[in-house]
């Protein structure tokens, strides 16, 4: 099955007073219809910038400096802004990290969904109103008629996130970008939001890209996972393979750095911190934190090596034999 979204060798840079910040460096990945692709990494790994880049919403001083973005056969980077408008928010939708501040505080949530339906689906006021209530019901908001008449401050955090998901889905997008959709929510509410995303993904056949720093969320929600470190893609694999046999030293370190509820582990923090991305030199950006670093890692950026089942890993220290089983 061909990919819905193809990101190829994408790089994003920000010009700052201190120098050029390389926020995303040569990332290649794809998302297929009906799958949930997780993007995981620490703060500063470039996850959110990558999401902005996919929407072509990187603002100056940031700039997409190279790479290709293909979505449903369109070259997103070559598309004129007017044509992009028809895709952004309609074919590709975003569920943001902070639902409450992403909602308009002066407009009822129902009206916000209605506006979207009128804009993107050309509905009249009455039809939009009915469809908006149906959307709120679809994201399992109890008593949707009453809730539609309320403002963001009258809803709980979990409820606001449901409204955001309803808005994202109102235009029947083919690709849903969810940037840390459960961060800041209580565990039980977060679990229900993820379950909802999973169900809606299955129902609609849309692809979902789920950005998170929580490996638990990845393991329980995603089909495939991209691990990012300091703007670079470290590893891309099916979720079962990734957790069963993490290949990249960074993936292994991530797994060992979180306390677990299901077993006792010896907690091992990841060495060092995400490096500064200002005027970075060539080579692997994980090299100074990596226990397996080789001389080559400083000189040369490791290429993305292909392995079985579409798995990819970018590491000099991972033996070829280890990758291709």
């Amino acid at each position: 099955m061909s990919a819905l979204l193809e990101v190829e060798d994408l790089s994003v840079e920000f010009a700052t007073d201190d120098g050029m910040v390389s926020a995303v460096d040569g990332v290649t990945l794809s998302a297929k219809a009906g799958e949930i692709l997780g993007i995981v990494g620490e703060s500063g790994s470039g996850k959110s910038v990558l999401i902005s880049a996919i929407l072509r919403l990187v603002r100056p001083p940031g700039r997409i400096v190279s790479g290709r973005l293909r979505f449903e056969g369109n070259d997103l980077l070559a598309l004129p802004e007017a044509e992009l408008e028809a895709i952004r928010g309609a074919r590709i939708a975003l569920v943001p990290q902070t639902p409450r501040t992403s909602l308009n505080p002066l407009m009822t949530v129902g009206r916000q969904v209605e506006r979207l339906l009128r804009l993107h689906r050309g509905m009249d006021k009455r039809a939009a109103r009915e469809a908006a209530i149906a959307m709120l019901e679809r994201v399992r908001i109890p008593d949707p008629k009453r809730r539609a008449g309320q403002y963001a401050h009258e809803l709980s955090g979990g409820m606001c996130q449901r409204v955001m998901i309803a808005m994202a889905l109102a235009t029947e997008p083919r690709l849903l970008l969810a940037d840390e959709p459960t961060t800041g929510l209580d565990v039980s509410i977060g679990a229900r939001i993820l379950e909802l995303l999973r169900q809606l993904g299955e129902e609609s056949g849309a692809a979902i890209i789920l950005v998170t720093h929580d490996l638990g969320v990845v393991a329980q929600t995603c089909h495939r996972v991209a691990v990012m470190h300091a703007g670079q893609l470290s590893e891309l694999a099916g979720v079962d393979e990734l957790f069963e046999r993490p290949l990249h030293p960074y993936t292994r370190a991530l797994v060992r750095s979180i306390p677990r509820i299901d077993q006792q582990i010896a907690l091992q923090p990841i060495a060092g911190a995400v490096p500064s991305l200002v005027n970075v030199r060539s080579g692997c950006r994980y090299v100074r934190r990596c226990p397996d670093a080789l001389a080559a890692c400083r000189r040369q950026r490791p290429p993305l090596i292909a392995a079985a089942n579409g798995r990819r890993v970018a590491c000099h220290a991972v033996e070829q034999s280890n990758v291709v089983r």
Partner: peptide, 21 residues
């Protein structure tokens, strides 16, 4: 406990869900 996502895709907790908020 059931709501905590376990960082292992093979471990699927028994769903135990409360209604409402």
């Amino acid at each position: 406990l059931a709501a905590v996502p376990v960082p292992d895709p093979k471990v699927r907790g028994e769903p135990f869900v409360l209604s409402g908020e």
